[in-house]
Design a protein around this nucleic acid. Sequence first.
DNA 1: TGAAATGTTGGGGCG
DNA 2: ACGCCCCAACATTTC
Length: 467
Amino acid sequence: MPTKNIIWFRNDLRLTDNPALTEACKSGQIIPIYIIDESDTYPAGKASNAWLQQSLTDLNKVLNNHLLILKGQPLDIISKLIKNEGCTSVYWNRCYTPYAIKRDKHIQKTLTKQGIDIFSFQASILWEPWTIKNQQGSHYKVFTPYYKKGCLQATDPRTPLKKPKITFVQLKKKYPIDKIVINTEKYDWTKKLLQQWSIGETGAKKRLTAFIKNDLHNYSQGRDFPALEHISKISPYLHFGEISPNQIYYAIKQLDYSDHETEAFLRELAWREFSYYLLYFYPNLATKNLKTNFDHFPWKNNKKHLIAWQQGMTGYPLIDAGMRELWQTGFMHNRVRMVVASFLIKNLMIDWRKGEAWFWDCLFDADWASNSASWQWVAGSGADAAPFFRIFNPVTQSKKFDPEGVYIRKYVPELAKLDNKSIHDPSSATPIALQQAGITLGKTYPKAIIDLKSTRQRALEAYQTIK
DNA sequence: TGAAATGTTGGGGCG
DNA sequence: ACGCCCCAACATTTC
């Protein structure tokens, strides 16, 4: 009689390089499950959930319709399944959010007591936080030494595993796939957004291959120009584990060349690791300033400004293009993410947590670790963060990185007819230029909601008060 | 993975 | 031809 193993999929929605799946298959027959965890303290945002639906649909397909998608309390669901089907072990790949760590520990303890074997694996990060320590035996606080001395001197990451041979358990009972997940009606608005992506494990591999072929050679420079899209766009796949960081890492390492470009890309992958690392040592990363002096920062609570930012109606075209890209595609180019975040935090002086929340809801790639670490990075309140006084000028950034206004015209079409010089800052364009482009400020496109120079000054003065 | 203010230099216009 | 000034262009400092 072969053993019956539950493989609990979480952020590892793939069959290749999936250690928990591989081991579960080695030792017996499997019951693959996904649980919509109702007690998660920070449930995924709307965009993220929409992606998840598609991803689960795809995973179910490659599992020949054997994936059970169940909703409720994970411990209850797993216990019931064990009892109904006579399982002897549960396999999963480790998660690293504070909530998941606590939940999994509890489940492991409870089930072990009942004689069930729990096997957990490392699958979604290259280096687990507790394995990387500095010379004093503490955790690193600065990225470069963390990466160079910590990670790169540590054991090499696992090389990717092949897809295992799977035998499914013949279930004794029926388990209705949860309708909430498969119901697309609720997320009708996301249909169009999702069509722009090829979701699932195969799509992830295609995306990576295309990036390596077309964009990697020019990554370090090209990634700064939002119109070029010389970026990997792999983050949503990586978040849900449709591809593993190991697969990406070795796809780059095993190229027949290694240069400034490949290094630059691997460094970005390492920033993701650093985010997980920080989250592990600072479980409140998403809610509390790592630099506590920021607790006294005089944030403005201007609802109108926040909404203008969210809707892409600030009157600064690069900001508005970025925010509309987010709304229309569930994604935003990285350079623009930094600029819009700087604008919200420093020019509007709105608490970074408001921005973090909006991104959490709108981004397909919304990731608890990366999102909070990155917002704290821009705010200057995080570990090894950008200094507060590094304030982006959205007009300067626009001229530098979207000189022809290609990106702006794509997402802010009402400015399409403006000339290349005026398009970066319509509020300071000549009346003739505006008229020729058919633009009436305040009517067809908003007037700049704030003045850059004075708000910059205001931010610097506010920063002085908390120093 | 800035930007603005301030400092320095050197070519060219001009009296 | 010379000194003076202007001001780009670049470098350094500051936030």
